[in-house]
Design a binder for these strands. Sequence first.
RNA 1: GACCCCUUCGUUCAGCGGUUAGGACACUAGGUUUUCAUCCUGGUAACACGGGUUCGAUUCCCGUAGGGGUCGCCA
Length: 461
Amino acid sequence: MTTRTRFAPSPTGHVHIGNMRAAIFNWLYARHTGGQFLLRVEDTDRERSTPEAIKTLLEAMDWLGLNVDEAPLYQSARMDAHLAAAEKLLATGHAYKEDKGGTGQGECIIFKMPGTDIEFTDLVKGALKKPAADMADFVIVRSNGTPVFHLANVLDDIEQKITHVIRGDDHVENTFRHIALYKALGAPVPQFAHLPMIINAQGKPYSKRDGDAFVGDFQSKGFFGDALFNYLALLGWSPGDEREVMTRQEMIDAFDLVTVRSSPAQMDLRKLLWMNGEYMRAMKPADFAALCRKELAAAGIGIEGRATSPTEPRSCETARSERLAPPINSESAGNAAVFALMQERTKLPSEIVSAAAFFFSDDFAYDDKAVEKKLSKPEVFQTLEKIAGILENLEKFDAETVNKALHDFVEQGGLKFGDVMPPLRIAVSGQQSGPDLAPVLAILGKENVLVRIRKTIARFS
RNA sequence: GACCCCUUCGUUCAGCGGUUAGGACACUAGGUUUUCAUCCUGGUAACACGGGUUCGAUUCCCGUAGGGGUCGCCA
């Protein structure tokens, strides 16, 4: 018998990270066992289950690569079947009608617990047992005629032939009731695996106020679906060895439910960030370049020529002449060099713009603190002037040549690197930190570097 | 309150009767670098507590404490 797992969320417009981890474990288990992974949309709450909410859900799954093997089952379409089953339970004596609480709202249908102890072996928590005395009968159809979660959930799992119910810890108590339902319905009881919750630093369920709690939050911040998947898979599970950054296939191969931990786990956004950086570095240069282009374009920075600033049209010749020399040439080699420099030091796409914009725009902003700290003494400007002179006379302007020229300058002048490099970096980039300076200068090109140095001198001396 | 579950470095995952208790993130000290980041080499840091069982417990059992979950005509 092939395994069939499912993700059964109720669409609310947001997909909680804890829910998504349950989906990931379901997916991983189905793939590991060569079975099927299904989706059931529990959309009986018509208020919240809007088309947009369902779309959000589907997009989140798609983003994380959680492909399903069959068309989703929409619970709202199953009401007749649920009600019919309730009638059957009534007919077989497993349920009865009652005006519970005597509210006068009419009779609801109540499932009669069998009166025996119920036990099952949870795949992650082990043997679990509940005595008959601790379990009360429960409502399966409301007095308004609508089915309750327990009935609908079990019936749909039967309909979808689910063999392994992998879900959140908060459902363990329900499981005893569900097992009784399966038996009364004459259906085989599936295996259960209850996942511990994701908690915050206070040990409470991780929620929105603890930080990013929804899949969409991570997506919009630029995290990769694969990185989040990888991180979440490792929250409560490990392959048994010391691998952490793993491919999908490696995770599928190593996954198992019995090795899932049964204690709650806390989100560590810093480790997620680190992992995202690992995925960033593992990207193909071409893919990373495409990402850079996208980010820069979104920030209004054209990388094939001058900066494109919507507020500053550059058609006027006068305005043009006042601007700096053109930024680096638009040859793809130049861009590729920038991207290569960035790929080594970026963890989130959003960092690209702030760190690399100066390559493409002569309108880069100066870091006030850096200026105050490094460009305050008069002699700094003399030094910059000298450097400009030296660079201007260089025949070649590749990183190696530039690097040697700068080293020679420092040594012959009896200076310290700290007196020379930081001001120069600020002059050409506005920032006090960044990639190796020589390659940066080489990429910018001699003309740009000279103009930027002189503009800096003019502005701050 | 009742019932159930959980408890190894700050976080996370290993360990499944005998280990110098390991890896990763974070932190930190050096190295590399003009700087930040990357990278390399180190370091700090944990078995909640008390009883058993055993030649021997982080590992097994029982308590205690702490934390969490569930007790709806919500899902």
